[in-house]
Design a protein around this nucleic acid. Structure first.
Lengths: 143, 143
DNA sequence: AATTGTCTGCAACCTTGTTGCAAAGATAGC
DNA sequence: GCTATCTTTGCAACAAGGTTGCAGACAATT
């Protein structure tokens, strides 16, 4: 919890309940969460607008990042140095069974050679498949 | 134009004006189009619902495919065998200047090694950067 | 040309993104 | 610890998609 407080101080943000709870929820989740999932996991029911603005704020500060999936499905996750913080490569795994989205290490990705005159600033890779938790049983981890 | 007619016949779809025009527009565009861009490029103003249903229809038949970008931004493009039809790899280039989305050859992509117990069904790579048309001048191709 | 089944347009509703404004809360100085 | 100030929150409201049902229009078939 000190982690959260110092993060907010570092980013010059007031330590408000909504911010603390959003951060706590995202930090303690092993998957990226949709806004809906996030709100459901939070104990207090904050207004939609408040959560929206807080997420937007966190996004622009790089505290969290978002993953756009097919079908207007956006997930949010804490940006951890060890996983998703590579300057220009983001790798996410989307499980077709439990629908969870996991941040994977960026260094498993090899940058492709682009056609002439195309220059890349960053890469976003989404891998669809079956995650480790759903691998054996075939049963989803979250139901 | 025969191309379009035979495509529709092959997929068991009636040759209706809306379908023909959507296909014609997508085929003649070198970039993936948003629904809005698509509607603007079409000569007849079809109802939003009609376009929506037609696109959904084409998507499920694999005639077109969609690319989900950040910020609820979805683009649609014809699925060409030479470009985007690889069974499990889709590579798209999103230009930060002209905002265009181009389908790139899937074979420039190298599949990464996944963590234990993760298994992949398909890969979606989105590369952000500057496209060939915006490369030199710095001026966007479409304005 | 008539029939049948599909497609289109309209109305309507839901979700998500977004803004303005006023009330409530956090931070800083007294 | 209390007040002033600036920030954050909640509410209302609207825009843009996504989505469905239904009835009239249209395409394909006989």
């Amino acid at each position: 919890m000190k982690e959260i407080a110092s993060l907010l101080v570092k980013k010059n943000l007031a330590k408000t309940p909504c911010r603390v709870e959003i951060l706590r929820t995202l930090i303690s989740s092993d998957t990226a969460l949709s806004e809906q999932e996030l709100r459901q996991k939070m104990t207090h029911d904050y207004d939609r607008t408040t959560v929206y603005r807080t997420l937007r704020n966190f996004l622009s500060l790089g505290i969290i990042h978002s993953v756009a999936l097919e079908g207007n499905d956006v997930r949010y996750a804490i940006t951890r140095n060890s996983e998703c913080n590579s300057e220009d490569v983001h790798v996410h795994f989307h499980c077709n069974k439990c629908t969870g989205v996991y941040c994977l290490e960026a260094d498993i990705f090899t940058k492709p050679v682009l056609p002439d005159r195309f220059s890349a600033a960053n890469f976003d890779l989404i891998i669809n498949g079956v995650c480790e938790k759903c691998h054996i049983s075939g049963n989803p981890h979250d139901s």
